[in-house]
Measured scan of single mutants.
Amino acid sequence: TLFEALYDYEARTEDDLSFHKGEKFQILNSSEGDWWEVRSLTTGETGYIPSPYLA
Score class of each variant (00 low, 15 high):
residue 8 D to R: 15
residue 21 K to N: 03
residue 10 E to I: 11
residue 42 T to V: 09
residue 34 D to H: 09
residue 52 P to S: 15
residue 27 I to M: 03
residue 28 L to T: 03
residue 30 S to Y: 15
residue 30 S to H: 08
residue 25 F to P: 15
residue 42 T to C: 10
residue 38 V to W: 15
residue 11 A to D: 02
residue 8 D to N: 06
residue 43 T to F: 13
residue 23 E to A: 03
residue 47 G to C: 09
residue 19 F to L: 04
residue 46 T to M: 06
residue 38 V to G: 03
residue 33 G to V: 08
residue 41 L to H: 03
residue 43 T to V: 00
residue 13 T to P: 03
residue 21 K to H: 04
residue 29 N to V: 07
residue 52 P to G: 15
residue 26 Q to K: 04
residue 42 T to F: 06
residue 18 S to W: 05
residue 19 F to H: 03
residue 5 A to T: 04
residue 42 T to R: 14
residue 45 E to C: 11
residue 18 S to K: 05
residue 3 F to Y: 12
residue 15 D to T: 13
residue 42 T to P: 00
residue 8 D to M: 02
residue 36 W to G: 00
residue 54 L to F: 07
residue 39 R to C: 05
residue 12 R to G: 07
residue 47 G to P: 00
residue 44 G to L: 14
residue 33 G to S: 10
residue 17 L to H: 02
residue 44 G to N: 06
residue 50 P to F: 15
residue 5 A to V: 04
residue 51 S to I: 05
residue 26 Q to P: 01
residue 37 E to K: 13
residue 33 G to C: 12
residue 35 W to Q: 10
residue 17 L to M: 13
residue 31 S to G: 10
residue 46 T to K: 14
residue 15 D to E: 14
residue 18 S to E: 04
residue 32 E to Q: 13
residue 10 E to S: 08
residue 32 E to S: 13
residue 55 A to L: 09
residue 55 A to V: 12
residue 37 E to G: 01
residue 42 T to D: 08
residue 33 G to I: 08
residue 31 S to N: 08
residue 52 P to N: 15
residue 49 I to Q: 00
residue 50 P to Y: 15
residue 23 E to V: 02
residue 26 Q to D: 14
residue 8 D to F: 03
residue 6 L to I: 08
residue 4 E to Y: 15
residue 7 Y to L: 06
residue 36 W to M: 13
residue 7 Y to Q: 12
residue 24 K to V: 12
residue 32 E to D: 13
residue 5 A to F: 13
residue 53 Y to W: 07
residue 14 E to N: 11
residue 32 E to I: 10
residue 13 T to W: 13
residue 10 E to A: 07
residue 15 D to M: 13
residue 54 L to D: 07
residue 26 Q to F: 14
residue 43 T to Y: 00
residue 10 E to N: 08
residue 55 A to S: 14
residue 12 R to N: 09
residue 52 P to W: 15
residue 7 Y to G: 04
residue 26 Q to R: 05
residue 4 E to I: 13
residue 17 L to T: 15
residue 19 F to I: 07
residue 40 S to P: 01
residue 48 Y to S: 03
residue 36 W to E: 00
residue 49 I to V: 14
residue 55 A to Q: 13
residue 1 T to E: 12
residue 7 Y to V: 07
residue 47 G to L: 05
residue 39 R to M: 09
residue 33 G to Q: 09
residue 16 D to V: 13
residue 19 F to P: 02
residue 10 E to K: 09
residue 5 A to P: 03
residue 2 L to P: 05
residue 53 Y to F: 11
residue 4 E to H: 06
residue 12 R to L: 10
residue 12 R to Y: 07
residue 24 K to E: 04
residue 54 L to H: 08
residue 48 Y to G: 00
residue 49 I to E: 00
residue 5 A to I: 04
residue 23 E to K: 00
residue 53 Y to I: 12
residue 19 F to S: 02
residue 51 S to F: 11
residue 55 A to K: 12
residue 39 R to D: 00
residue 23 E to N: 15
residue 29 N to T: 06
residue 28 L to M: 05
residue 41 L to D: 11
residue 47 G to V: 03
residue 18 S to P: 04
residue 53 Y to C: 15
residue 34 D to C: 14
residue 4 E to D: 04
residue 26 Q to I: 14
residue 1 T to V: 15
residue 2 L to S: 04
residue 50 P to D: 04
residue 3 F to V: 07
residue 4 E to S: 02
residue 28 L to G: 01
residue 44 G to E: 02
residue 12 R to K: 12
residue 39 R to E: 10
residue 19 F to C: 05
residue 22 G to N: 03
residue 14 E to K: 12
residue 51 S to H: 06
residue 51 S to K: 09
residue 45 E to M: 12
residue 11 A to S: 14
residue 46 T to D: 09
residue 14 E to S: 12
residue 32 E to G: 12
residue 51 S to E: 04
residue 54 L to R: 05
residue 25 F to R: 14
residue 25 F to Y: 14
residue 30 S to C: 13
residue 8 D to Q: 03
residue 15 D to S: 13
residue 10 E to T: 10
residue 21 K to R: 09
residue 40 S to T: 14
residue 38 V to H: 00
residue 23 E to S: 03
residue 48 Y to E: 09
residue 44 G to D: 02
residue 42 T to G: 11
residue 48 Y to V: 07
residue 20 H to D: 03
residue 16 D to R: 13
residue 17 L to A: 02
residue 5 A to R: 01
residue 24 K to T: 07
residue 43 T to G: 01
residue 37 E to R: 10
residue 1 T to R: 11
residue 19 F to Q: 02
residue 41 L to C: 12
residue 48 Y to L: 11
residue 20 H to V: 12
residue 7 Y to N: 05
residue 21 K to C: 07
residue 29 N to P: 01
residue 37 E to H: 13
residue 9 Y to V: 01
residue 24 K to A: 05
residue 14 E to Q: 11
residue 19 F to M: 09
residue 47 G to N: 01
residue 14 E to I: 09
residue 29 N to S: 13
residue 46 T to A: 04
residue 51 S to T: 06
residue 8 D to L: 03
residue 17 L to E: 02
residue 26 Q to C: 10
residue 20 H to K: 13
residue 9 Y to A: 02
residue 7 Y to C: 14
residue 46 T to P: 00
residue 4 E to R: 02
residue 19 F to T: 03
residue 46 T to Q: 12
residue 13 T to I: 05
residue 42 T to Q: 09
residue 48 Y to D: 00
residue 47 G to Q: 03
residue 7 Y to M: 07
residue 46 T to C: 06
residue 12 R to M: 10
residue 43 T to L: 00
residue 33 G to H: 10
residue 54 L to C: 10
residue 35 W to H: 05
residue 41 L to P: 01
residue 3 F to S: 02
residue 37 E to T: 11
residue 13 T to H: 13
residue 10 E to Q: 11
residue 36 W to T: 02
residue 54 L to W: 09
residue 29 N to C: 09
residue 17 L to Q: 01
residue 15 D to V: 12
residue 41 L to E: 06
residue 21 K to D: 03
residue 10 E to H: 08
residue 37 E to Y: 15
residue 50 P to G: 03
residue 45 E to L: 14
residue 33 G to K: 09
residue 39 R to H: 03
residue 39 R to Q: 06
residue 16 D to N: 09
residue 13 T to Y: 15
residue 6 L to W: 11
residue 14 E to W: 07
residue 11 A to T: 03
residue 16 D to E: 15
residue 13 T to Q: 14
residue 9 Y to I: 03
residue 34 D to K: 11
residue 1 T to I: 13
residue 38 V to P: 00
residue 28 L to P: 00
residue 26 Q to A: 08
residue 39 R to K: 09
residue 12 R to F: 08
residue 8 D to H: 05
residue 4 E to T: 14
residue 21 K to I: 14
residue 36 W to Y: 04
residue 9 Y to R: 03
residue 52 P to E: 15
residue 33 G to Y: 08
residue 46 T to E: 06
residue 54 L to K: 06
residue 43 T to E: 01
residue 33 G to R: 10
residue 41 L to K: 02
residue 43 T to P: 00
residue 54 L to V: 08
residue 25 F to W: 01
residue 30 S to F: 12
residue 47 G to T: 14
residue 27 I to V: 12
residue 8 D to Y: 04
residue 1 T to F: 12
residue 37 E to Q: 13
residue 18 S to R: 03
residue 27 I to Y: 04
residue 42 T to N: 07
residue 30 S to D: 12
residue 14 E to R: 10
residue 11 A to R: 06
residue 44 G to R: 00
residue 27 I to L: 10
residue 29 N to D: 10
residue 19 F to R: 01
residue 10 E to G: 03
residue 55 A to N: 11
residue 49 I to T: 00
residue 21 K to V: 07
residue 43 T to I: 02
residue 26 Q to W: 12
residue 9 Y to E: 01
residue 20 H to N: 08
residue 44 G to Y: 04
residue 52 P to C: 15
residue 3 F to C: 10
residue 39 R to P: 00
residue 10 E to V: 12
residue 7 Y to F: 10
residue 8 D to T: 05
residue 3 F to G: 06
residue 13 T to F: 15
residue 9 Y to T: 01
residue 52 P to Y: 15
residue 36 W to S: 00
residue 53 Y to E: 10
residue 12 R to E: 09
residue 52 P to F: 15
residue 17 L to D: 01
residue 7 Y to P: 01
residue 12 R to W: 13
residue 29 N to Y: 04
residue 16 D to M: 13
residue 31 S to I: 08
residue 44 G to I: 15
residue 9 Y to N: 02
residue 40 S to G: 02
residue 55 A to C: 13
residue 19 F to K: 01
residue 41 L to R: 01
residue 10 E to M: 09
residue 7 Y to W: 14
residue 20 H to F: 10
residue 45 E to H: 09
residue 54 L to E: 06
residue 14 E to Y: 09
residue 47 G to A: 03
residue 35 W to R: 13
residue 38 V to L: 00
residue 6 L to T: 13
residue 48 Y to M: 12
residue 41 L to A: 08
residue 11 A to F: 04
residue 47 G to K: 04
residue 51 S to D: 06
residue 5 A to M: 05
residue 9 Y to G: 01
residue 29 N to E: 05
residue 45 E to T: 13
residue 42 T to E: 13
residue 28 L to D: 01
residue 51 S to R: 09
residue 16 D to K: 12
residue 42 T to I: 08
residue 13 T to M: 10
residue 32 E to Y: 12
